[in-house]
Each structure stands twice: as structure tokens, then as C-alpha cells.
């Protein structure tokens, strides 16, 4: 979880789709729009993109290199990490990345978003922390829609804390985005959302770290197991699934490990893959005995190596990457087999 987003911080972001046409986004079926939310006859919700149901298979993206901190503006990185990551993401079946903020160089950020979409078909969810402005959520939602009526506006929240109040005072918010870390499954989360804030929800952060705080070693197996279990549970609550149908997808935290997270002030520590955990969740049972077991520097489905490849930290996909690929890009192995067969034939 990103620093500054602990507890009940509230923020707003838009689902930003490059190349989409204009129109108002409302919680109705409106066939002339490229992106909108639809309520089905059974009361389930769907996100529609270019006239097709779209399930958000997303991943939080911040490719901060080893030795740098969150202040590093990766959108300006001349090595264009998103071109390397985009390919891997595409193979994995990722269709959305989440950026926590655009950074200072808006043009560079826009270029990155365009590159991801044009080369890999990946959309972007753009967010920003409100801070003081959390008291004016609905006003901001309305303002965003004045500027950009083409896309749904989402309220980002930590868990479902305060949702019953938000339901009354934020009628112009189209969907809910929640950060949820409840272990292998989401438990009563979707039911709580339905009860407290009956609008579509996307889980804007969920995941599992790859470090076993109890055994004190990397644990790719449990990370993969947990992510798979979380996704399968989320899937049940998509439209026409066996659950409540109020989920439009989820965004995994996160694409890569971030080595700066233990101490954003200590430069030396950015070069070390720290194993300290600053908070704990008992539901991550495999290392709950350690007490604090959420190892912030180890949440990546892709590990970074200090070894460089094309001036970027070498990407080392973990087991979780492949397990998610099995879920999100089911036929990838067939493509792989066909291309191997073709190569053999040649």
C-alpha cells in the first residue's frame, strides 16, 4: 500500500481511456458513449468499453528503479520502462494500470499512457490524493465531469470506512474504488459495499507480498496462492457471477517491488531490499505469527534485479505473474506452443 494512503484517506480518480470519444458518463446504459457503467436487469453492474463488457484486470504501476525513491519521475525515464513492462503485462493479460498521480511532467505522463494503450492495449486509471479536499468530494466529482464528461468518476477509499456517509453526500460519484487487504478472500466486503454504497465497485488495491515474515525468506508460492484465491473470489462478484454482481474488476498491488518503501528518507536503504514490515494482517495466515507481516518492499508480481538489462533493472516475474497469466490470458500457452511449433517447422 502506498505511503500516505494508510487508514481512511479518500481520493478521486478517473478511468482514463486514450482515444475515446466524448459523452457524459452516467450510471445508465447510454449506447453513444465509449465508456460507461451499466445496470443489468438482474441489478448487477457492468463497465462497458467500446460497447463490450470490460472487466478491469489491473495492476498498480510505479517502476521506481532500485536506488531511487517515490520522488523519481518514472514517466520521464529515458529508458521507457513501460515499454518493457507493457509487453510483459500484455502477455500476462493486464488491461489496466493504475497510476497514483501524474507527476509534474504532464506531457510525459500522457505520452506514457498513450504508449501503453497504443502498443499494448492497456488503459490507465489515474488517481490523486485529495488530502484537505476530502471534504469536497462531490464538488470535485462534479467539476471533473464538467472538464471531462466522457469517463466515470470513482471515489477511492480505504476499505468501506465511512461509506454510509459517502452514499448520502456523494451522489455524483459513479463508482467506488476500495483498498482491501483481507487475506485470501474478500469476505463480506462486497456485501458491505452493496449495503452501504450501492454502486459498482472496483478494488483499487489488493494483493499479497512475496516475503514470509515468519520464515524470514521470500515466499513466491504463498504470494501466488493468495493472489489466485483473491482473483477467483473477486470474479464471483462480477456481473452475472454467483455473487452480488457489483464488482467491475480489480487492480493488484503491485507490478514491481519498490525498494525505497521502508524508509523514504534514508538513501542507503533504497539500495537494500529491506524485509521490515510496518503493519500486519492476521488473515495472511502463512506468516501471521510474525505479527507485522505486510512487507511493503515485496509486493511486486515482478521482482527487480540489481542486474541491468537495457539500462533497466532486470525484470524477474514471480510465480504470481504466471498464475495470473493463467487466469487472465488463459490461452497464452497455446500461442507459445504454436509459435514454438512454427519455429521448429522453420
Amino acid at each position: 500500500m502506498k505511503k500516505g494512503f494508510m487508514g481512511i484517506a479518500i481520493f478521486i480518480f478517473c478511468l482514463s481511456l486514450s482515444g475515446c470519444g466524448k459523452g457524459e458518463a452516467k450510471l445508465k446504459e447510454e449506447k453513444h458513449k465509449d465508456v460507461y457503467l451499466r445496470t443489468l436487469e438482474n441489478g448487477h453492474y457492468e463497465l462497458i468499453v467500446k460497447e463490450k463488457p470490460f472487466v478491469i484486470k489491473g495492476i498498480c504501476y510505479a517502476p521506481v528503479p532500485i536506488g531511487k525513491s517515490h520522488l523519481f519521475n518514472f514517466t520521464c525515464d529515458p529508458n521507457k520502462p513501460w515499454m518493457v513492462d507493457g509487453k510483459l503485462m500484455n502477455e500476462m493479460g493486464v488491461n489496466t494500470v493504475r497510476l497514483y498521480q501524474p507527476g509534474d511532467e504532464l506531457a510525459a505522463c500522457k505520452e506514457m499512457i498513450e504508449d501503453l494503450y497504443k502498443n499494448y492495449g492497456i488503459y490507465t486509471v489515474m488517481g490523486h490524493s485529495l488530502g484537505f479536499w476530502e471534504y469536497h468530494v462531490n464538488e470535485l466529482a462534479k467539476k471533473i465531469k464538467e472538464i471531462d464528461p466522457n469517463h466515470p468518476v470513482s471515489l477511492g477509499n480505504g476499505e468501506t470506512v465511512g461509506m454510509e456517509f459517502a452514499a448520502d453526500i456523494c451522489p455524483d460519484v459513479d463508482l467506488l474504488g476500495c483498498i482491501v487487504y483481507r487475506g485470501k478472500v474478500f469476505g463480506s466486503f462486497f456485501k458491505e459495499v452493496k449495503r452501504k454504497f450501492d454502486k459498482p465497485v472496483m478494488i483499487t488495491e489488493f494483493g499479497c507480498d512475496a516475503y514470509n515474515a515468519f520464515a524470514q525468506k521470500e515466499d513466491q508460492l504463498n504470494q501466488a496462492k493468495f493472489l489466485k484465491s483473491q482473483w477467483l473470489d473477486l470474479e464471483k462478484h462480477l456481473a452475472n457471477g454467483e455473487g452480488l454482481g457489483n464488482c467491475v474488476g480489480g487492480i493488484i498491488f503491485e507490478w514491481n517491488d519498490e525498494w525505497w518503501k521502508t524508509s523514504d528518507c534514508d538513501r542507503d536503504s533504497w539500495l537494500v531490499h529491506d524485509t521490515e514490515a510496518s503493519w500486519g494482517v492476521g488473515a495472511y495466515a502463512f506468516d501471521a505469527q510474525a505479527g507485522k507481516n505486510m512487507n511493503e518492499e515485496w509486493f511486486g508480481v515482478v521482482a527487480f534485479s540489481p542486474e541491468l538489462e537495457n539500462n533497466l533493472n532486470k525484470r524477474m516475474p514471480r510465480k504470481a505473474y504466471y498464475e495470473l497469466r493463467e487466469l487472465w490470458n488463459k490461452d497464452f500457452w497455446k500461442q507459445d506452443e504454436e509459435s514454438s511449433a512454427e519455429k521448429k517447422g522453420n
Partner: peptide
């Protein structure tokens, strides 16, 4: 020891 409020989820 541990203390948890089961009504509020993870936060």
C-alpha cells in the same frame, strides 16, 4: 496479545 475490530475490515 492481539486486538481486532471485526466490524471495520482491514483498516
Amino acid at each position: 496479545a492481539s486486538a481486532q475490530d471485526y466490524s471495520v475490515g482491514t483498516v
